[in-house]
Design a protein around this nucleic acid. Structure first.
Length: 1099
RNA sequence: GGGCCUAUAGCUCAGUUGGUUAGAGCGUCCGCCUGAUAAGCGGGAGGUCAGUGGUUCAACUCCACUUAGGCCCA
């Protein structure tokens, strides 16, 4: 028995049952383990931040991961999917700080780093176990990934692998200490990540000052004009930057009582007040090296800094200088701007920090020392004004970053930091990226490629607490550095006490086994050398280094599992959001390509954001976020997954629209269920089973069967090609179309009669085999995308435990028949045209008509069409088709049209004229062309010979007939309704009414019989129609007898319907009375059917 | 300022290597069909294929620029 699937259960209940079954049969485990490790498809899971909240966009990226992994599994690969957790870093630290009510970094130190990190660890493991979080979402959406044995970035073994990697970098001389300009909160005394900075942007009123820098060695008094919104940085000014390709002018500027010579970008002359006259113009590159006098002399005077400044206070060139705002001359304070810093490195300027870590002006600036940096702004401006170096001062409102925790204005601030010199192998990263298959390619070439092209060194140290400790031990003078590459490397190091003093106790091999390297534990180890002790650099490393190390660290490589690592490296496939371009995609590439010489992944699918249905970004404040659990339970995971893939390609921003998902449920999933339901209904009646011995060879099946099988095999072929190319959208759309259009709306619609008529015979068997084949293959094709529905279908068809243990279908080329597909398409076009004409003529499809006329170009076309003739006739309810060759009939009017593609190539400019001439070809000319196979057309003075195939002949009209044409196909319809046809039409009306009535009767199954129909009507024509179609009516409505009778309708003394019990037969005899209106005539019917007691009781 | 992407019907999207009636779904109005269907079919209304220029016999398609929007970087 094929079970009924269209029960009232919700998608959620339906899918929960499947989840339970998977669990019971360990389907995921089997789907991996039943494939040998000879054929491995390697997948890397990007670790989610452990205390993050899963959102709807994660459902998208996890769908992309899952679909490919399931597909490759079905293709016979062993696809292990080790889950992972990103557990270190600020997200966790901040959550704990919030819990403890901390405001400052020193709160953590006072609280105790050991206790703090203990709390971090507890939160990490609590989140991993959290039943309402990631794990629940992942399971509910059927993303198959091994979450029972995940890699966890804070585990000692994971950290040890990272240490190994960092030592490799160090051994190659790629780790160095430098400055890094970071967004920095002076109150919290910590650098902020870019993500945090983005949280804190707000509008601020800041001074906007134009400052004059006096040019040295100039014939006349002359000033460079620069602009800034941060006067406090002027104290650290060391240079002025101009763009080498921008033109700069010297002007004589007159305003109020002043006249002065100024230099600025030509494009920004509008910034000047008063009148000006341009005296000269040069390119920025020519200004390079010109010197100017410092605004203040604090630094020059200083015994420490002074000597380093010989090279400073001059014009430098850099292309980052813009002419958007300001003056085109940018003041440079290397300690307080990323570009400034970079330019300083380029020109060899020192980095002088004039503000302390807590935001106060440093002692070296004797006049302002101790002032909060922002508070110093007005004082500095006043000083400049007194010195006559202030050109103009205004206040502007712009967006500026503030600390999202304490609201202090942030500063960009140079800090000591450790770097990996990725620039050393930038070229290799750039070149090897080209071997990665990016989907879409433009992200690989563009966004990622450009990023690699102007890569900067990677600052990897962080002055925080909960993270992978940086494994460098350094002597006091910084000259001796020891990189530790394993816990064993620590053997022999000396334990320090809490105050940092050596205890004489050494780190042993046993210590290495149980060692937890987290702070502060690791800071209590020091190495004794000749000169003293090497102590650990107290920093932790960037969490992105953690996740980028997962290819080897997840296996604790190289300390164990060498084989596992090598088998899995590089990954065949990864997939994440576009935000990971500079995140995980990059760190994976940068770390692993260095370590292993080849990129860590071969194929990537990148997905873009999910927007709400109006195209708005989702955010909590807008209140338009979508709860993934809610989406998954209301629509079912299948519908959500399918919609994500089919609505648009993953790498375009996607609009989330619940209505679209609901429509998909109705149109696709319900149609599929109904198609199955139709099959199951009749298969159960006929006791059909798929058996090898009764299987009908596809080649011996009907035109219709061979057609759908051809389409099916074409679909399999296409889907395989697309899936292999990491295109998931096309398969989803194609499967949808196949199920809705080809199977349901054409194959089943046109084949229904075969299922419900008569006994089991070869044709019926073929029909069952065919639809079974379609359903089973579709269940496999859709399994990667809709893992639930496909499995339900697969199970219902009795095909096995789970579709996810089955092989992906392969196409049989011999079954694909393109000629058949073409002629069926033509049959569909003709059917559509006939329905169009019926609409115009106001003749219902139920009314049979005598004939249609189809003009064809030649015999071959006619022969092709003959093969699908019956299908057309049945579909449009017409008795016969008349085929005519164009040339053989006078009634057909033809039109000639140029084949642009063919002719255009050879004719070139003449094309227009020739095409126009062809369009006016007479009927005689067309006939002549068809007979000879060519025609000579004269256009002005030249004659063009047009060969066969270069003109298309289309039958456009048939005189005296109703005609319609589309896609080059023309059909004429005979609209005459003879008396016989009219009677037959009425007969079909009667059948229709009775069929509708059958459906109204409770508990009346499609195969149940009506025993007797009695009818009464005053209409002569209806009487005639009933007489003429009696047999047909009996046959179609499964009725024993049909007879005319004088009955009262409805009987006054009885309910309608009523039943009598026949004791001798033990059955109920039911009487149902109905009156129908057919063509304005009344027909009264008494329908009599028997039901046995058992059936009746049900009612 | 730089890079990438996008712009086709009221909405969501197709549109193959340039080739001559630019399509589908949703929505809307009229009609039809239905013995699996919460479906389906036919018709009506709705398009300056964002704009300008270029290449070409021919441009939604290729090129350049412009405009608008998005993302990333600065």
């Amino acid at each position: 028995m094929y079970p009924e699937l269209r029960t009232q259960t919700s998608p959620d209940e339906r899918e929960q049952q499947v989840l339970a079954r998977w669990k019971e049969h360990n389907v995921f485990g089997r789907s991996v383990n039943e494939h040998s490790s000879d054929k491995v498809f390697s997948f890397y899971e990007g670790p989610p931040t452990v205390n993050g909240v899963p959102g709807i966009h994660h459902v998208l990226s996890r769908t992309l991961k899952d679909v490919i992994c399931r597909y490759k599994t079905m293709q016979g690969f062993r696809v292990e999917r080790k889950g992972g957790w990103d557990t270190h870093g600020l997200p966790v630290e901040l959550a704990i700080e919030k819990e403890l009510g901390f405001k400052h970094k020193h709160d953590i130190i006072e609280y105790g780093v050991e206790a703090f990190n203990k709390k971090c660890r507890e939160m990490v493991y609590a989140n991993i176990a959290n039943p309402a979080g990631w794990r629940a979402m992942t399971e509910r959406m059927a993303y198959w990934v091994d979450m029972d044995r995940p890699y966890i970035t804070c585990e000692p073994s994971y950290i040890e692998s990272i240490w190994w990697a960092l030592k490799q970098f160090h051994d190659k001389g790629l780790i160095y200490k430098g400055h890094k300009i970071q967004p920095y909160c002076p109150r919290c005394e910590t650098a902020l990540s870019s993500h945090e900075v983005a949280l804190g942007y707000d509008t601020a009123k800041d001074p906007s000052v134009y400052v004059k820098f006096r040019r040295k060695n100039a014939a006349e008094e002359e000033y460079f004009l620069a602009w800034t919104t941060t006067p406090w940085t002027l104290l650290a000014n060391l240079a002025l930057a101009v763009h080498p390709d921008v033109y700069y002018v010297t002007v004589i500027n007159k305003r109020k009582d002043k006249v002065e010579r100024l230099v600025l970008a030509e494009a920004l002359l509008t910034k000047l007040e008063g009148e000006y006259e341009v005296v000269s113009m040069v390119k920025g590159s020519e200004l390079e090296g010109h010197q100017y006098e410092p605004l203040f002399d604090f630094l020059v005077r200083d015994p420490e800094y002074g000597p380093k400044l010989a090279n400073a206070y001059k014009i430098v060139n850099d292309t980052y200088v813009s002419t958007e705002d300001g003056t085109g001359i940018v003041h440079q304070a290397p300690a307080f701007g990323e570009d400034d810093y970079r330019v300083a490195q380029k020109y060899g300027f020192p980095v002088i920090v004039t503000v302390t870590g807590s935001g106060e002006i440093a002692d070296v600036i004797t006049d302002y020392k101790g002032q909060f940096f922002k508070d110093a702004d007005p004082h500095i401006t006043d000083a400049l004004k007194r010195k006559g170096l202030l050109y103009r001062k205004e206040t502007i409102e712009h967006t500026y970053p503030f600390c999202w925790r304490c609201d202090s204005p942030l500063m960009y601030y140079a800090r000591d930091s450790w770097y990996i010199r990725v620039t050393d192998y930038r070229k290799e990263l750039y070149e090897k990226n080209k071997t990665i298959n990016w989907q879409p390619p433009e992200i690989g070439e563009g966004r990622f490629g450009n990023w690699l092209e102007d890569l900067k060194d990677w600052g990897i140290s962080r002055e925080r607490f909960w993270g992978t400790p940086f494994p460098l031990w350094v002597s006091e003078d910084g000259k001796e550095i020891k990189a530790v590459g394993s816990f064993e490397d620590l053997v022999g190091a000396e334990w320090l006490d809490d105050a940092g003093n050596p205890t004489g106790k050494l780190f042993t091999k046993e210590d290495a086994i149980t060692f937890d390297p987290h702070k502060p534990n690791v800071d209590k180890l020091a190495f004794k050398t000749k000169s003293g002790y090497l102590r650990r650099v107290p920093d932790v490393i960037d969490v992105w280094f953690d996740s980028g190390s997962m290819p080897f660290a997840q296996y604790h490589y190289p300390f164990e599992n060498k084989d596992l690592f090598e088998q899995a490296y590089p990954a065949d496939y990864i997939s994440e959001g576009i935000d990971q371009t500079r995140g995980w995609f990059y760190t994976l590439h940068a770390i692993n390509t260095f370590l292993f010489g080849k990129p860590p992944y071969k194929n990537v699918i990148v997905n873009d954001m999910i927007l709400d249905k109006n195209g708005q970004k989702m955010s909590k404040s807008r209140g338009n976020t979508v709860n993934p659990f809610e989406a998954l339970t209301t629509h079912g995971a299948d519908a959500v997954r399918w919609n994500f893939l089919s609505s648009s390609v993953p790498w375009k921003p996607k609009l989330y629209n619940a209505d679209d998902i609901a429509e998909l449920e109705r149109k696709f999933f319900n149609t599929l269920l109904n198609t199955y339901g139709f099959f199951a209904l009749y298969a159960n009646i006929d006791g059909y089973e798929r058996k090898a011995e009764s299987f009908i060879e596809p080649a011996k099946r009907s035109e219709m069967d061979r057609w759908i099988l051809s389409k099916l095999n074409s679909l399999v072929k296409e889907c395989t090609v697309w899936m292999d190319g990491y295109d998931l959208t096309r398969p989803a759309r194609a499967i949808e179309t196949f199920v809705i259009e080809e199977v349901s709306n054409w194959y089943v619609r046109r084949s229904r009669r075969r299922f419900w008529k008569g006994e089991m015979n070869a044709d019926k068997q073929a029909a069952y085999d065919t639809i079974y084949e379609c359903l089973l293959t579709v269940s496999k094709l859709m399994a990667p995308i809709a893992p639930f529905m496909s499995d339900i279908l697969y199970n219902a068809l009795g095909a096995g435990v789970s579709v996810h243990l089955a092989a992906y279908p392969t196409a049989t080329d011999s079954i694909i028949d393109t000629a058949l597909e073409r002629r069926m398409q033509k049959a569909q076009i003709i059917s559509s045209l006939v329905r169009q004409m019926r609409e115009r003529a106001k003749i219902k499809v139920r009314q049979p008509l005598a004939r249609i006329l189809v003009p064809s170009g030649n015999r071959v076309e006619i022969e092709e069409l003959r093969k699908v003739e019956d299908i057309i006739l049945d579909e449009v309810n017409v008795k016969r088709v008349e085929h005519i060759e164009h040339g053989d009939s006078d009634v057909i009017k033809r039109k000639a049209k140029a084949n642009y593609k063919l002719l255009g190539a050879q004719l070139g400019k003449e094309m227009k004229n020739v095409a126009a001439r062809i369009a006016t070809m007479s009927d005689d000319e067309i006939t002549s062309y068809e007979r000879q196979g060519y025609i000579d057309l004269q256009i002005t003075t030249t004659t063009h010979r047009i060969e066969r195939g270069e003109i298309e002949i289309i039958a456009e009209d048939v005189e005296g007939w109703l005609v319609a044409s589309e896609y080059g196909v023309t059909v004429a319809l005979d609209t005459e309704i003879t008396e016989d046809l009219a009677l037959e039409g009425l007969g079909r009306e009667v059948i229709n009414r009775i069929q509708n009535t059958r459906k109204e009767i409770e508990h009346f199954k499609v195969e149940d019989r009506i025993d007797e129909i009695r009818y009464f009507t005053n209409s002569i024509i209806l009487q005639k129609a009933l007489e003429a179609n009696k047999d047909k009516i009996k046959e179609e409505t499964l009725t024993g007898s049909v007879s005319s009778a004088m009955v009262k309708f409805p009987p006054e003394d009885k309910p309608n319907p009523f039943a009598t019990f026949n004791e001798s037969k033990g059955i109920y005899i039911n009487h149902l009375f109905k009156a129908f209106n057919i063509e304005d005539e009344e027909l009264k019917v008494e329908i009599i059917y028997y039901q046995d007691q058992a059936n009746k009781k049900q009612g």
